[in-house]
């Protein structure tokens, strides 16, 4: 089962394939507006989730994605229906980007019957076979070998699907990540590893946790190309992911390290003593992915203020509806306690 190894330079600075130019300004506007909408949906959804947590409607761990929206939106834009996605526990944004319903995600957060896992998974454990979203995993880095297994299944079945595996800078130090990189490279599996480097693994900065010259370079010993991307710029993410997905689909794994930032704490209770307010404020002011795209939309004439206001209104309605649904959906029936432990043979 030999496979032609790609001659393409992975990771390096090869330019985009001119997709944007070829598609013309009109479709470019449509795409940018869609990204704006998708990022805003995640932002507003997470803000509402944080508020509902504060009201006691959501319990336990709740890891918000605010600030990192450009990563999933830019990458998802490069994927098709045949591709699969898996991530860790900061997963609400990934699910919304994958097209899962805001109602079902929010109702899972509130632990209700209408949630994607019927209230039995919670914030960190949601799935949608229909959308090829494979979770939602609570153990740091456990999703990485699982994602390589999804890539294996694509290859085994002779499909050309790609498995996208998200993990954070904290997970990047787990041993199973390197077992996974080795297997993916050794067996030439179609896996795109996306490292969401938001600078802090819980309260420990990357510089205090990770040796070496950058997380994107950590596939080097396995021959896996890696590239560092501005994860606060959805267009940069899209361009890098487009190239990487094409390469991975051709039959070899790749790494993208997204430089990103979470505005909120690690989870809901976070003393925030490990970084300064100035640092957070500067990020929000200078690099916010949604504001940056809004500026592009307005300054390049893709949309006027009314169009953006209409999107804001639409998102507000979706989130309000999801919140209402999540509050009104009943708790799971007590009989649910014993269902879904095993499948009938």
């Amino acid at each position: 089962m030999s496979r032609q190894s790609s001659k393409k330079r992975g990771g390096a600075s090869a330019k985009g394939n001119g997709r944007a130019a070829a598609n013309g300004a009109a479709s470019d506007s449509g795409r940018l507006l869609r990204w704006y909408r998708d990022m805003l949906l995640i932002r507003r959804f997470e803000e509402r989730a944080g508020q509902m947590y504060g009201m006691g409607l959501i319990g336990g761990f709740c890891h918000l994605y605010i600030g990192q929206e450009a990563v999933v939106v830019g990458i998802q834009a490069c994927l098709g229906e045949r591709d699969s996605v898996i991530t860790g526990y900061r997963d609400h944004g990934h699910m919304l980007a994958a097209g899962m319903e805001a109602r079902g995600v929010m109702a899972e957060l509130t632990g209700r019957e209408g949630g994607y896992s019927r209230g039995k998974g919670g914030s960190m454990h949601m799935f949608s076979r229909e959308k090829n979203f494979f979770g939602g995993h609570g153990i740091v880095a456990a999703q990485v070998p699982l994602g390589v297994g999804l890539g294996f299944s694509h290859r085994y079945k002779g499909e050309d699907g790609v498995s996208v595996v998200y993990f954070g800078d904290g997970a990047a130090n787990q041993g199973q990540v390197y077992e996974s990189l080795n297997l993916a490279a050794l067996w030439e599996l179609p896996v795109l590893f996306v490292i969401e480097n938001n600078k802090y693994g819980m309260g420990t900065s990357v510089s205090r946790a990770a040796a070496g010259s950058g997380l994107h370079a950590r596939g080097g010993g396995f021959g896996i190309p890696g590239r560092l991307v501005d994860g606060m710029d959805v267009r940069a993410v899209y361009e890098a992911a487009g190239e990487a997905v094409a390469e991975v689909r051709g039959g070899r794994p790749a790494i993208l390290e997204m430089e990103t930032y979470r505005y909120r704490g690690h989870s809901m209770s976070d003393p925030a003593k490990y970084r300064t307010r100035e640092e957070v404020n500067q990020m929000r002011r200078d690099r916010d992915p949604i504001e940056r795209l809004r500026h592009v939309l307005e300054s390049e004439g893709h949309a006027d203020a009314d169009a953006l206001k209409a999107i804001d209104g639409e998102i507000r309605e979706i989130v309000a509806d999801a919140a209402q649904f999540a509050e009104q959906s009943p708790e799971p029936d007590p009989s649910e306690l014993y269902t879904d432990v095993l499948l009938e043979a």
């Binding site: 699969s84 898996i86 070998p145 699982l146 390589v148 297994g149 299944s153 077992e179």
Partner: peptide, 19 residues
């Protein structure tokens, strides 16, 4: 390879993927 954590996880992922 001798990589139990890795191949056990890979196997579980493959089972999720329909194998």
């Amino acid at each position: 390879p001798i990589t139990e954590h890795g191949f056990a996880g890979l196997g579980v992922g493959a089972a999720f993927g329909g194998l």
